[in-house]
Design a protein around this nucleic acid. Structure first.
Lengths: 204, 204
DNA sequence: CACATAACTGAACGATCGTTCTAAAATAAT
DNA sequence: ATTATTTTAGAACGATCGTTCAGTTATGTG
């Protein structure tokens, strides 16, 4: 690679990194191209040389983030054996890696708002569905191995994802330890429920 | 009340109603005062006569929404006896009343973004804490009555709230029946867990 | 009817936004 | 060394935003 090409690639990476941090810190709309320019020292014109638009930049950032997350989790995964452990592990990894400021929150800016950008929404759906499919596979294994009761793994995956997603929003004020405790508790509840053993219920 | 005062009050209500729908439909930032003006036929200047600012208008809308929700739920609540039924009932009410487009989603625009408006954040925290306190009370009753195992009711309330909040985000594409089914399934999981009865676990 | 005040209008303002454009600087190719 | 190409800078543009303000209309009061 050229000296020119190397420098150009580094500039692109510098922009993407700063954009990621600003999007997380301030949100998508509140982050202006000028903010990114100021943070990096890269001119506005140059940002538009490397990315076709603000929306294109955001999609790029989302894509890179998803790749990184998955790579790192696959590495972490090796240390866990049972599915139960893996569920706890995935939650822990979720907390530690995106501690209180994941891009997931930025995603909310685009959801349920009819006029918002379709390209970005599609990218976000892709990310979410990837995550749910992954959880579903995990839960299926747990059902096959007899760890979990026979059940609709897709539904369970959605509930599990929901739990992680929602918790992230409620843990804003908590420190790392408190957050991890709450996540662990949530997964225990997911695993074992809250009903007393002698409570009568028509459980299918 | 004067004819003048009555008309003025109606105008204020008309603005608040249109604002609520637009905030839900498009989000807070994407909704402009001009949008609200166009939707109501009320001039921009008049909107500023009734509300001090866009942010003040949003807080007003949030406040009214919380009041309404609670009033309606208190009415619904009467038909349920056990806490288990009430948990299912509150979820059902949540789905039916805010079906797929609750203001909760608009709230996300303000969370985890350091530069966002503190007044609005405070109002949102108030709303969320009210909801959690309410769930906590419900769960405490369930624990007292023996329906649920003895546990930290605040933690459980947070997990329960998280579940409802998160589900709302995943049910975007589903119709009413599918949404209700997923909610019911989530609460069953919350109550009874997913672990098989013979799975060994150190359950406290 | 005359006057005061509440309710309302719409043009105008300053700020900020995403994006474009022209031109300069840096590097590669010949 | 000269030319071509890629990369960078920053001014400028048009659009949109929340807000203000001077002035008009509608209603209440005496």
């Amino acid at each position: 690679m050229n000296k020119k090409q190397t420098k150009s690639m580094l500039t692109k990476k510098k922009i993407a990194d700063a954009a990621k941090h600003l999007f997380i810190q301030k949100g998508y709309t509140a982050t202006s191209i000028e903010n990114i320019s100021d943070a990096t020292g890269v001119s506005k014109g140059n940002i538009y040389y490397h990315f076709e638009s603000k929306e294109g930049l955001f999609i790029y950032v989302l894509d890179e983030w998803e790749k990184e997350w998955m790579e790192q989790w696959e590495e972490q995964k090796k240390q866990y054996s049972s599915t139960t452990e893996q569920l706890h592990g995935i939650a822990k990894h979720f907390v530690i890696n995106d501690y209180n400021h994941p891009l997931t929150n930025v995603a909310d800016e685009f959801f349920n708002h009819e006029n918002s950008n379709t390209l970005i929404q599609n990218q976000l759906y892709k990310t979410i569905n990837t995550r749910i499919s992954y959880s579903q596979e995990l839960l299926s294994e747990g059902i096959s191995s007899g760890e979990f009761k026979t059940d609709d793994s897709l539904l369970l995956a959605k509930i599990f994802d929901t739990l992680l997603y929602g918790l992230n929003n409620i843990c804003r004020d908590l420190n790392m330890k408190e957050t991890l405790d709450l996540y662990a508790k949530a997964i225990d509840t997911f695993l074992y429920g809250i009903a007393s053993d002698d409570s009568t219920h028509s459980h299918d």
